[in-house]
Simulated assay, not measured.
Amino acid sequence: MKASKLLWSVLILIIFRPASGYAQISQIEVSAKYNPLSKYLPPADSASKPGKASQSEFNVGALVNIHTRIDTATGRIRSLGSNIQARYTSFSRDGYNKEILPPELYALNVGFFYYSTINRKWAYNVFLNTAINSDFKEVDKNDAFLAGGAVFIRQFTPNFSLGVGAIVHNNLGGFMPWPALTVDWKMGGKFRLDIRTPDKSAGIAHYVGITYATSNKWNMSFAFQPEVLSYDVTTSNERKNRLMSFWQLPFTLSSTIRAGNFEIIPRVGFTALRRYAYGEKKVSEMFTEYPYHGLGTNLIYGIGFKYRPSIRAKNSR
């Protein structure tokens, strides 16, 4: 399977998703990232083995507003939406990495979320994500990954809100609980602290960023975006287990340039850590420690494009 097939599958979902009732696309995003050639890092207790790999990543996704209702009498907002994402990751491998790293990985995620205000100070967000993460060599139930949870949000001031909650996911085998936290803090008119844990992803992703903006047409952001994605991959002589857990700890500096409903987002940064291990998707193996392979610290180059069409909300009396 080529990357184009995965991207086309997401585009078909995006095109046909708004066909029902009130559904509207609220955002379309396409992005690409590249990590240059990096040294292979064997497990700590293993002999040194030569190897290198570069990493390319392509993402396409959309947010779909299925239905939004605003009660004009009480001001209450209720919104049902969906997020659709696809990711294609390829590795150019050399040396021992040819035996360890799969050449291609695919992730397709479809999520649903329901947001509702309770009163002027409180709101909640409930979400469910379903993902197929695989090398698509042997597809079965182990390629499916699920996550769901809820966050309760308190609006302390017009410039500061805090949300806390919990999620449950099976990215590492059996279902595990995980804390959830959101912070939106606008400071001094130009700075904004944004924390989203978890963030939208086919895995378990987090976002911690500070943004500086002098106008609504331009901003600069520095972000830390740790992420772990699990894939079901085929076994080989060096990969005895099917569950591949892939950790990334990137730091990025990005700039957003807006022109109407369009945004251009160039990025540069570095990945402090990339590790991958092969285990089993079984409850009994959840806490088993497997050898971690790695790729050396290296730069990140990226570019993203967003399109945000206008959204119409239905009022209720």
Rank of each mutant, 00 (worst) to 15 (best):
L6T: 01
L7Q: 08
F16S: 08
P18E: 09
Y22D: 04
Y22W: 04
Q24E: 10
Q24Y: 01
E29R: 14
A32L: 07
K33G: 00
L37C: 00
S38W: 00
K39T: 08
Y40K: 08
L41R: 07
P42G: 01
D45P: 06
S46V: 10
S46C: 06
S48P: 01
S48R: 09
A53N: 02
A53H: 07
S54M: 08
E57A: 02
L63G: 14
I66K: 01
H67A: 05
R69T: 08
T72Q: 14
A73D: 12
T74E: 15
I77C: 11
N83M: 13
N83W: 08
T89M: 14
F91Y: 15
S92F: 06
R93D: 07
D94L: 09
I100Y: 15
P102V: 12
E104W: 00
A107D: 04
A107I: 01
F113I: 00
Y114Q: 03
Y115N: 05
N119C: 14
R120H: 10
W122P: 10
Y124H: 06
N125H: 14
N125C: 09
L128P: 00
L128M: 09
D135N: 14
F136E: 10
V139C: 03
K141E: 08
K141D: 13
D143A: 11
A144E: 04
F145R: 03
A147W: 00
G149N: 07
R154P: 00
R154Y: 11
R154I: 05
F156G: 01
F156T: 05
A166Q: 06
H169I: 09
H169S: 02
N170G: 00
N171Q: 14
L172I: 14
M176K: 10
M176F: 10
P177M: 02
L181F: 15
T182R: 05
D184L: 15
W185Q: 03
W185L: 14
M187S: 07
G188R: 02
G189I: 14
K190M: 12
F191W: 14
F191R: 13
L193C: 02
L193R: 00
R196N: 13
R196E: 13
T197H: 13
S201F: 00
A202H: 01
I204A: 04
H206E: 09
Y207D: 10
V208R: 01
T211Q: 13
Y212T: 09
S215M: 08
N219M: 07
S221G: 05
F222H: 02
F222C: 02
F222W: 07
F224C: 04
Q225K: 07
E227I: 15
V228Q: 12
L229F: 04
S230E: 03
Y231V: 10
Y231F: 05
Y231S: 01
T234Q: 07
N237W: 07
K240P: 13
K240R: 11
N241V: 06
R242T: 04
W247K: 05
W247L: 13
W247H: 10
W247Q: 09
P250H: 00
S254W: 08
S255H: 06
T256G: 15
A259M: 13
A259Q: 13
F262L: 15
F270W: 12
T271N: 13
R275I: 11
Y276P: 06
E280K: 06
V283R: 01
S284H: 08
M286N: 15
F287L: 03
Y290K: 04
Y290Q: 14
G296M: 03
T297P: 04
I300R: 03
F305L: 11
R308E: 11
P309M: 06
I311P: 05
K314V: 06
S316G: 11
